[in-house]
Nucleic acid binder design. Structure first.
Length: 638
RNA sequence: GCGCCUGUAGCUCAGUGGAUAGAGCACCUGCCUUCUAAGCAGGGAGUCGCAGGUUCGAAACCUGCCAGGCGCACCA
């Protein structure tokens, strides 16, 4: 399929260049026509050229087509011009034959390829404060990040997924205050991160009327930063334990990581020191003697166009107390990711993940003499919520300001909007202020314990799926029902998280997220399950496919839709838009369903039967590959 | 005040200058002795926030407004 579109594009470009000024070649675009009578591929370039050439679009289109007609390959069986000036191409059967041949060759690897100049990509995602259970906002982050990682891997990029753990901030300190100062104990049998969810809320509410407790937190924070004491050790243990909870939660969704990077190690291993030495060489980084920032080291970003409008375009890197700010460590971390620091973390194994991938963690003792290589990225994608845009801009612009132009250009903040709760859901959770007259969505707030925990949501989802399965399969053993319900629930939630445009806030609603119908993950699973069911009953297609005299429209559409995947994957990955893939996957499932409705397989006469078995197999393989890139579970039966 | 994001069907959302603006949910009417009805076919439903502009062509691009959200710390 890429071959045909490539050929046609090339032919159009050369023909256009013959007829019009050279820069017109960039005007050539191709699109899928909205209706089948316009053919399989259309080009609106004549309408764009009409003005340059001062001729009617229709006439330009006619001439373009006549000029290129003799050079059309046998991939094209028909080419027409339709008002207001489109050139339409209809594919010959060779195109669909090639698609089937390619997918028979590549199987479940279909769509995967090795793109040129695939430099190493680091994707940072999840990044949950290790002090409470993960909520649906975190799940959105992790699903997006994990999908970006899967897509890049499929295109041959070396990918390293990092999960940044902020172990030295107030969030963890609050929990330490809860356990250590308030002497709280974790009840047995309850998930530890869930216990901390409530404790975090309680501690924060106590701060309101107990200023002394806030002073305790300050002491805890200092102790954590100083290190090598009981308080710091407790913080480390608590954070580690919660990180394990997060990893377990995410693993259920097929999400894994290569490396945990701990904020504390950036100081402990001297990364900040090295980074600062490099930064300080630049005049933009200076110590302030007067003004609001007196006594601080700041980086001045006023000269940068993105920051020149700000009242105060300076950012504090080192406080007057001598400690590094969070953003300072973030800058050092970003520099390390690009291999700009001549120092490194130590590394050790942290856990085996269900995916089989080994998870490493940074550690505070050097790993000299090993061949471990982390960092050294060509491109860095940080999946971080949109509220942190300003700080991510500071990181990127700081690199740019001190001279790391290329690294700044390769720093991508993948911003996604927060998840809030629908009034109905908020009310269901007993959130105060919900319902009543305030009809707006309710923002999640960790400190107040407002939010939907991922584990709880999944449990409800599994329960709903279980009920649906039971309604269809009375005799299925309980364990099978559970496993099936799990796969359906996970995929429904992942799909829900991925199908939405990252730039809009998700108003989370139980009713909608729990949907198993329509444009949803289970719809894809169902289409594949029906396909597998045919293969189970009909057996695998054997030998070379014997092409029928005339393809049904549904057969042709199915093959062409399958054929679009490689290009879709490139596009979605290049544009960092997973929703393009969910949308495409839904279309493909729909194309199969159309085929399923009109083209009986098992009861068809040979050789049609054999041919259709090939189509069904092709669909299964293609869909498996697509769902793999989205992290959705393929079910052979449901 | 400055900056960013969002505004499309009753609801939730797709739609990266092209053909008659599309899905799902909800609602209504049909379809299971025929490969899984978690499905399919059909129906009603729209001032694409508003007003200008650019263009052969604008939901999309530009300008200005309106509405909602977020950000602009020696917090993380």
């Amino acid at each position: 399929m890429q071959r045909v579109t490539g050929q046609l594009r090339e032919l159009l470009v050369t023909t256009v260049t013959d007829m019009a000024p050279e820069d017109s070649a960039a005007l050539v675009t191709l699109e899928t026509p909205p209706r089948p009578e316009f053919g399989d591929l259309s080009c609106p370039v004549a309408m764009k050229l009409a003005r340059v050439l001062r001729r009617s679009p229709l006439a330009v289109a006619e001439e373009l087509l006549e000029r290129m007609r003799p050079r059309l390959s046998d991939y094209v069986t028909d080419a027409t011009v339709t008002p207001p000036g489109y050139i339409n191409f209809t594919y010959s059967e060779r195109v669909t034959q090639d698609i089937l041949a390619e997918i028979r060759m590549k199987g479940r690897q279909y769509g995967g390829q090795q793109v040129d100049e695939a430099g190493k990509v680091i994707i940072e995602h999840t990044n949950i404060n290790p002090n409470k259970a993960a909520h649906v906002g975190h799940l959105r982050n992790a699903c997006l990040g994990d999908t970006l990682a899967r897509c890049h891997r499929k295109l041959g990029y070396p990918v390293e997924v990092q999960n940044y753990i902020d172990d030295t901030g107030t969030a963890v300190a609050d929990i330490v205050v809860g356990f250590n100062v308030l002497k709280k104990e974790a009840p047995v049998g309850e998930p530890f991160d869930h216990v901390c969810w409530d404790l975090y809320t309680e501690v924060n509410s106590r701060y309101q009327d107990d200023p002394q407790l806030l002073e305790e937190r300050t002491r805890v924070l200092q102790a954590i930063e100083a290190g090598d004491n009981d308080m710091a050790e407790l913080a480390r243990r608590l954070a580690t334990r919660i990180v394990h909870c997060h990893l377990d939660t995410m693993a259920v969704f097929g999400i894994d990581y290569d490396l945990l990077t701990w904020e504390g190690h950036i100081l402990q291993m001297g990364l900040w020191k090295h980074a600062f030495a490099l930064l300080a060489e630049h005049p933009a980084v200076r110590k302030e003697e007067t003004g609001a920032n007196a006594g601080c080291w700041v980086i001045g970003l006023a000269d940068h166009p993105e920051f020149s409008h700000l009242e105060n375009p300076d950012k504090v890197l080192i406080r007057s107390s001598g400690t590094a700010t969070y953003v300072a460590k973030d800058i050092a971390y970003q520099m390390w990711k690009f291999g700009l620091l001549n120092t490194d973390f130590g590394y050790e194994e942290f856990a085996d993940q269900p995916s089989g991938r080994t998870l490493w963690t940074t550690c505070p003792t050097p790993s000299d003499g090993t061949d471990l290589v982390f960092g050294q990225a060509h491109r860095v994608i940080n999946v971080i919520d949109a509220r942190q845009k300003y700080l991510q801009d500071v990181v990127r612009v700081s690199l740019d300001t001190v001279g790391y132009k290329e690294e700044a250009n390769n720093s991508v903040h993948f911003a996604y909007e927060v998840v809030s709760l629908s009034p109905a859901t908020a009310e269901e959770l007993g959130v105060e202020g919900a319902g009543g007259e305030g009809k707006g969505a309710v923002a999640m707030a960790g400190r107040q314990g407002i939010g939907v925990k991922v584990d709880d949501l999944l449990a409800r989802m599994v329960q709903k799926a279980r009920k649906e399965i039971r309604a269809r399969r009375e005799n299925m053993p309980d364990e099978e029902v559970d496993a099936l319900a799990h796969s359906i629930a996970v995929s429904a939630l992942r799909y829900y998280m991925l199908k939405l445009h990252p730039g809009s806030t998700v108003v989370f609603d139980f009713g909608e997220a729990l949907s198993l119908q329509g444009n949803s993950g289970p719809y894809l699973q169902y289409a594949v399950a029906r396909a597998f069911s045919i293969l189970r009953r009909g057996g695998e297609a054997e030998g070379e496919p014997r092409w029928p005299d005339k393809l049904l429209a549904a057969e042709k559409a199915l093959l062409l839709t399958i054929g679009a995947f490689p290009e879709m994957l490139l596009q979605a990955t290049g544009a960092l838009q997973p929703s393009l893939l969910t949308e495409y996957a839904y279309r493909l499932a729909g194309a199969f369903t159309d085929f399923y409705e009109v083209a009986p397989v098992l009861n068809a006469e040979e050789p049609v039967r054999g041919f259709r078995l090939h189509l069904v197999r092709a669909f299964c393989d293609a869909m498996t590959s697509i769902m793999d890139s989205l992290g959705l579970v393929v079910l052979e039966s449901m």
